[in-house]
Amino acid sequence: MATLNNILSQCESLPVLPSTVARLTSMLNREDVEVSEIHEIVRTDDALSMTIMRYANSAQYGARNRVFNLQESLARLGRRHLMQIVLQQQVADLFLDAGEAYGMHRGALWRSAQGGALAAECIARDHGFEDPDLAFVCGLLRDVGKLVLDKHYGSEYMTLVSKHLNTQTSFIEAERAALGFDHAELGAELAVRWGLPVRIVAAIRFHHAPPPPDSDDDDLFSIVHAADMICLWAGLGLGHDGLQYRLADHVRLKLNLSRDVVEGFIAQTVAATKASEELVQGKQNEEKLA
């Protein structure tokens, strides 16, 4: 059985995190981030600049008749939205063509990443969590372990794990039985190699198995776990693993996840994901910017 570190070392080309993302995540815990610092990061990237202007000039941000240039767009969107837009755009390339190991069609893992980010932010705000941006980033990156499984096993992965699946076994348990670890643990190790902050690493590690309530608990882990389940219910990024996952009961209780609350999150997440996709893909306002 291959060990987790073996897989990471043997992988011919590990997914590479754009340096922009590392720089931005390091800014997350700073209150004093200036828009000008984000401008420094984005100004040399034409595609990213176009995306930012597309957002700033969209109806969603109240644009009507005039067209805003990059400088104006940055100021208009503000620190929080900028951070989210830049992060999404920067990791899109990692996720767009991935998901083969889980039998996903093209784009499904990317949709799941975006959905997880938006759901985590939404739950974080609803729950009064102190840092919704951090929840957003963790939701976005929670499945990076799947990128490594794609590269190492490709389409053979499902066959390998399916041998350990039955109606009582979650897909996570089957992964552990087949590999000795699951995609969340693998993702966390990749995140360590990427140099991401420890709290993000831990949120990736625990997104299917949040620590029990009496342990050293962090609401972030519960939020990212719940966001992952919201994506499953919403049908964002389902693969051959289907819905073979469990919502931890202590997370349900802690976040007061009633039926109505969950359905509200599902509806909000899908609406926000669709809006975000349209903007990122430039379906809106193309004429205005041409």
Partner: peptide, 10 residues
């Protein structure tokens, strides 16, 4: 999803 003991049943 698994272990949905009637709370959601979507």
């Amino acid at each position: 999803v698994m272990s949905d003991n009637g709370q959601f049943k979507i």
